[in-house]
Design a protein around this nucleic acid. Structure first.
Lengths: 213, 213
DNA sequence: TCCGGTATTAACCATATGATTAAACATTAT
DNA sequence: ATAATGTTTAATCATATGGTTAATACCGGA
């Protein structure tokens, strides 16, 4: 994994084990011993490097959120057409989720408790930047409405729809794979189709048509 | 709350407090003492009625899932047109989530651990029934494709899109309300619009149009 | 009124678990 | 070689927490 952090080898092992355990069981549910076991070191070493469980969690959470914003919020360019912006967003979002499948659960756990950490991070990282993702999505959307590329609709509602459509596959996968036979085996193909599907439904659903039904 | 259960008043208080605490902090994170405090009784009483934390959690989980399937999976009739099926599904799903806003987090926590409990319940309750929701959605979808009401598309992909679009508003609300100013205040109106929006985008995105662009 | 069962509590117990410590081990510089 | 600094471990501690118990309050029926 490319943590891009100046961590020592041991720190890295601890960090990755912690990420895994926290994702799986949450802050409270995760056990220091199990993190140590997974990392192949002693409990005491975790404290040597990260001081306390709280700080370890904080470190992991901060890293996860930073990666989230780097992948999603930054360096995004609005396409000339809304079609480009939309397609780009879907691909980017799904890429991120594929790279970091534990992410939704990590985030959702914080959200379940009222998102105390996440909303602070959003206020700190996302909102101050002018070129953040929601902003770009909305402005690209509105420009496309003005140019007639798409019909009048609420950009925020659309954004929520797209995000939900992307994330639910990952968050709901264990359940979906029970309902849908063969999903686990064909996950890759299904996911590739998923990108096209979301784009097609949403974009087609937004573009005006000749007749007024 | 209408638990429809033969619980005594005290049991009910405990149950509701547990539901709240488990939703908020998960099985491990929830504290028996805090459940007791919230219910306004003593820790020992919880054990008197529910024996152990495990059993209490099991009781709460079973209830939540049962309610979920009752509201979603049962008594659903496919509409004559797919438009009706779709609209009905969206309304039903959002109604349920509105009534039980803790539900997504409750479910998602189980999913995060690989959905051990939930997948068992699905296999037990949902799959054996012929008239379950995914089945009806898919068959209504395919009938509509055959009749020309909607164009060719993957019904499963569409189902996932719709579910994700519905659920994400609730699961992501704390985050969304940071990003979108005034969302908290106008939640009701936004949610009402949400139903129309999802239906419109998806249905409009599915229906064929005169010109082939 | 008193008895018997049910409900409820306060105090206590056992243990899991986060945290600390002191000693051993490794590595590097002098 | 040896001191010094950094890394790692085994053993131990302190406490939070799930669970138990025995005593007490409550309440309906004889």
């Amino acid at each position: 994994m490319d943590t891009e952090t100046p961590y020592s080898e041991t720190e890295e092992k601890i960090f990755l084990a912690a990420l895994e355990e926290f994702s799986l069981h949450g802050k409270q549910g995760a056990r220091m011993q199990q993190i140590a076991d997974r990392a192949g070191i002693t409990k005491a070493l975790i404290h040597y490097y990260f001081r306390s469980k709280d700080r370890l969690y904080e470190a992991v959470f901060a890293f996860v959120v930073r990666r989230y914003f780097i992948n999603i919020g930054e360096n995004i360019q609005p396409g000339e057409h809304f079609a480009d912006t939309l397609r780009n967003f879907i691909d980017r979002y799904i890429d991120l989720l594929e790279k970091q499948p534990a992410l939704p659960f990590f985030i959702l756990r914080d959200i379940a408790e009222g998102a105390p950490v996440l909303s602070a991070k959003i206020r700190e990282h996302l909102l101050p930047r002018k070129r953040n993702l929601p902003f770009l999505f909305v402005s690209s959307f509105e420009a496309a409405v003005a140019s007639g590329e798409i019909r009048q609709h609420d950009p925020i509602q659309t954004l929520i729809t797209v995000m939900g459509a992307c994330i639910y596959f990952f968050a709901g996968f264990p359940v979906l794979s029970v309902i849908i036979p063969g999903l686990k085996r064909e996950r890759a193909r299904f996911l590739a189709e998923r990108r096209d599907h979301i784009f097609d439904i949403v974009y087609y659903g937004l573009t005006p048509r000749a007749e007024n039904r």
